Every structure is written in structure tokens, then in C-alpha cells.
Computed example of a mutant assay.
Amino acid sequence: MKAALCKSLDGPEAVVVEEIPEPAAGAGEVVVRVHAAALNFFDTLITRGKYQTKPALPFSPSGEIAGVVESLGAGVTGVSVGDRVAAALGYGGAREKVVVSAESLIPVPDSVSDEVASAVSVTFGTAIHGLKDRGRVKAGETVAILGASGGAGQAAIEIAKAMGARVIAAAASDDKLEVCRALGADDLVNYDAVDLKETLKALTGGRGVDVVYDCVGGKYAEPAVRALAWQGRFLVVGFAAGDIPKLPLNLLMLKGADAIGVFWGEAVKRDPAGHRANMIDVLRWVSEGKLAPRIQATYPLAEIREAIGVIDRREAAGKIVVTLR
């Protein structure tokens, strides 16, 4: 079978496509024939040895896949050969067949394409874990999303709206905010043009926001914490701004507020059943039209270097997916 292999840590240009032996499922595992393998920014890092996960060489990029079950290992129940499934792998998805733990499989509705099913685990999985499991968002609450125009932020807008929240999208330019408006954001804030704390307070009639979903960190974190409502929740999702902020803890005390870490990858490992339940909800919402994941482009496996290059050059405004059918 064919597989994209990173054989040296020299970045996306070092990835090659070669023939490798076909895998076999062990106990509790299945072999999935991969139809689509989505790429993320971390694929540009992992191929350079700069990601927190450092697999042994050679390995395949792509941490999320969709396809069909081809064979079952010993003791596997609840899934059948031919079932359409998706899975979050961490890495290793860009190959024609992969071995996956049966408990990690997510059933894919008939109306959802393989490309879309492969493209939701990381961004939408993080969003629903952050907003539902960690942020405890309730219908009618106000959620401010920092870095709302990026992939993680866009998914958070859609998930928060599906959960019945009012969404304030914050980003660094008016052009980026138009993307957020199209996704359903109720209010828009250019945090490089206004006082973020005062604007968030004004948009909530002085009450403050119930939840901040922070994808950027840096200089935006503290004013967002200052704009929290009583018993608000500040969700630490990422640090796209580059700097990890240091927060005055008295702000949390005075607001009875929580600062909460959102580490989706570790949560998937520790609670696969919870992740599976979340992703069943996500794919159901996709099938119902409540979520609309954006696929920017698809590439055949032979062009995976070009596909990762689009992300590496920061040219991706939607998901980049490798197809293997």
C-alpha cells in the first residue's frame, strides 16, 4: 500500500510517498481504509521535529482521517466491515490503510462526505470540548472568542451558536471579522482598533461576558479576563500571538471567575468515550446543516508536500485535505 512518509525532520519538502507493508489489526483494533486525511498546522511542525509529539521516523503526517472499516481484530464489537468512520490519530493518517483502536472510531452519517468527516476532529473537537466540557456554556450565555477568524476560532463560533450562545467574535482586522460575521457571530470586535475590555463590557451592558475562548494569548488575555462577568470562565486554548501571558490572580478572585485549560489532545486519550460522544454530536450537527466546515482544497496523496506547503506558507483559510480514493 502507499503511504506518505516523513523520513527526516527537514519539513514538508522531505515527505515522500512510498510502498509499505499492509497493516493487520490486533486485539481491540480495526484496519480502516483511508478515504480522506486532513492536515493541520501541527503537520508543519511535526515534520520538523518541533511539535510536542515526536514520533519515531519514519512516520506519516495527518492526525485525522475518514474512511471505511476493512477488517476487525479480535474482540471487536459494535462495528462492522464496511462501516463509514472517522478518527483522530495524532499522526499517521496519510496512508491508504491505518490501524485504529475500535473505541476511537466515530460513525459518519450518510449525508456527510469523507472530506468533511476527516476535517472536524481537531478544530471542532477542541471547540466542543472547550465550550461544553470545560466552559460549561449554557444557552443564552455570551461567549467572546479571541482569534475568531482562525481555524480554531471559526469552529468555536459555530459550536457556540449551535449550543445557543450569543457570540462576540474578536480578531485583528475588519476583513477577518467579515469571515466571522458570515459564520453567524452576533457582534464583532477589532481588538487592535479598540479597547478590548471596555468594548466587551459595553456590548454586554456593563455585565461582562460569561465565557472567553482564547486562541491567541499575548496582550489580549488580561483585558479579556477583566471583561469577564461574575463567575465567568476564561478558557485557555492556545497562544497564536506567540507570548504566553501572565495573569494577575486577584482578577479571578474578585470576579469569582475560573481560568480553565483546554487540552483537547490529552482529553481524547484520557476520555475516549467522552470524545466519541462529542464528535457524534458534531457530525450530527454537520448533517443537520448547523455546522459548515470549510474545505479549502483537496490534494491526492502524491501531492501531499504541496498540500502541507499551503499551510506552511499561511495560505490556508479553510481545511486542506488529502484524498486517497
Rank of each mutant, 00 (worst) to 15 (best):
C215F: 02
R181Y: 08
V116W: 11
R284K: 15
A227N: 08
V237L: 07
G164T: 13
A148S: 13
G184V: 04
R313N: 03
G205N: 13
A292S: 15
K2E: 01
A169E: 12
G73Y: 03
G208R: 00
V237E: 12
N278Y: 04
A88L: 15
A66P: 05
E288T: 01
K201A: 14
F263G: 02
L45V: 03
A139D: 03
L72D: 10
G92I: 05
G184S: 09
A170F: 02
A38V: 04
G318C: 05
I157V: 11
G153K: 13
A38F: 08
V32F: 07
S121M: 15
D312F: 03
E29K: 09
I320S: 10
D187S: 10
S71L: 06
A316Q: 05
V31A: 09
L228R: 06
R270T: 04
R325K: 14
N250F: 14
G256K: 13
E29L: 06
T126E: 11
L283H: 04
Y91W: 15
W230L: 13
T199M: 11
I65G: 03
D195Q: 07
Q296I: 12
A259H: 01
A25M: 02
K290E: 12
E141Q: 15
S113L: 08
E303A: 11
G208Q: 07
F124G: 05
L200Q: 13
H275L: 08
V116I: 15
A139R: 14
P109Y: 10
R181E: 14
